[in-house]
Nucleic acid binder design. Structure first.
Ligand SMILES: [Mg+2]
Length: 326
DNA sequence: GAGAAAGTAAACATTG
DNA sequence: ACAATGTTTACTTTCT
């Protein structure tokens, strides 16, 4: 999107970072991993191409990134599906941020007709009954439908996210031409399939996203379909924005690995680190707390214990696996 | 339950 | 020399 938003349709990573920060302020306070992810995606996905250094001379460090025309159409096609996305039908101006106000905090709306606005730096939605803060919301500028999840596998926040994503990554109807433009092998990112989602969009629903990310949907749903279809679109590059938020507050991994002998190869270090896990309760507690807030908001407190128990079960299973491995 | 897909973290390589 | 950039590898999680 950043690239697409650029007049020249090409951007250096730095500017991509910038765009993301501008449109998803969450990342400003997010741990640094996301930049890595950005680069990773640019590099791995075939739909992103570096433009020749010759033509893009002297931007300093790296080169400009562009979208391979072969994938562009599909990508945009899928983005159009999102109701509030700049590419939505009826929106004259795609992405391009108001030329007058490049700074995120000065523009009241993320883009024209966006249902989101800022108040004291917090992103709010105009009238859908969703009040949130944090990545979830911000990401939902892209993926505004927060679909309910059967409060299932505990801590699987991704599920919620993917669930929501499914709406956008799953073409419900193909306009003029199906996005069937052949997208071959690639690194599966580029021709990812959308998850098929048994859609249950009724009733109060809950979607948790981590400590500070809470989204409660109050019967908000629009045009949801669930047929699994090929999604000729680089879903990864988009969804990492949301996905990324999942792993926060776990600095132990990094530190542990470092602490465990820099001489060890990564592989060894990892398993070594796994051997001494972080205190499990923290995860549990974190989960419980998050779930608690959510459920409280949703008025479904009773589920909490259920959830916690499942979390513990999952944890136990994990430990057993680990034990087997060693 | 296996395997694919999609994700993160980090090592490693390159370059200005 | 260093930091930003780019590539690759290892591993986890989620979905089918
Ligand atoms: Mg690429």
């Amino acid at each position: 999107m950043a690239i697409e938003d650029a007049p020249s349709k090409r951007l250096p990573v730095k500017d991509i970072y910038g765009w993301i920060l501008e449109h998803f302020p969450y990342f400003a306070s997010a741990p640094t991993g996301w930049k890595n992810s950005v680069r990773h995606n640019l590099s791995l996905n075939k739909c992103f191409k570096k433009v020749d250094k010759d033509r893009s001379q002297s931007i300093g460090k790296g080169s400009l990134w562009s979208i391979d025309p072969e994938y562009r159409h599909n990508l945009i096609q899928a983005l159009k599906k999102t109701p509030y996305h700049p590419y939505s039908p009826g929106l004259v101006t795609p992405f391009t941020s108001p030329p007058t106000s490049p700074q995120p905090y000065h523009s009241p709306l993320l883009w024209p007709r966006s249902p989101f606005f800022r108040k004291n730096g917090v992103l709010l939605q105009v009238s859908e009954g969703v009040i949130q803060n944090g990545a979830c919301v911000r990401s939902h500028c892209l993926f505004p439908v927060i679909r309910s999840l059967p409060i299932s596998p505990v801590g699987r926040r991704t599920t919620a996210i993917r669930s929501a994503l499914g709406d956008y990554l799953t073409p419900c109807d193909y306009p003029s031409h199906p996005p069937s433009d052949d997208l071959q092998e690639d690194h599966n990112y580029s021709n990812a399939k959308s998850p098929s989602i048994p859609c249950s969009s009724q009733g109060p629903s809950v979607s948790d996203e981590d400590d500070d990310i809470i989204a409660v949907e109050v019967g908000v749903h629009r045009g949801v379909k669930s047929e699994p279809k090929e999604v000729p679109l680089d879903s990864a590059s988009v969804s990492f924005l949301s996905q990324h938020a999942r792993r926060r507050g776990l600095p132990w991994t990094k530190n542990r690995l470092r602490a465990l002998g820099d001489t060890l190869p990564l592989k060894k270090r990892r398993s070594a680190a796994l051997a001494e896990k972080p205190p499990l309760e923290s995860d549990d507690e974190e989960m419980k707390e998050a779930a608690g807030s959510l459920l409280h908001l949703a008025g479904v407190r009773a589920c909490l214990n259920n959830i916690t128990n499942r979390a513990k079960a999952a944890q136990k299973e994990k430990e057993q696996k680990e034990a087997l491995r060693n």
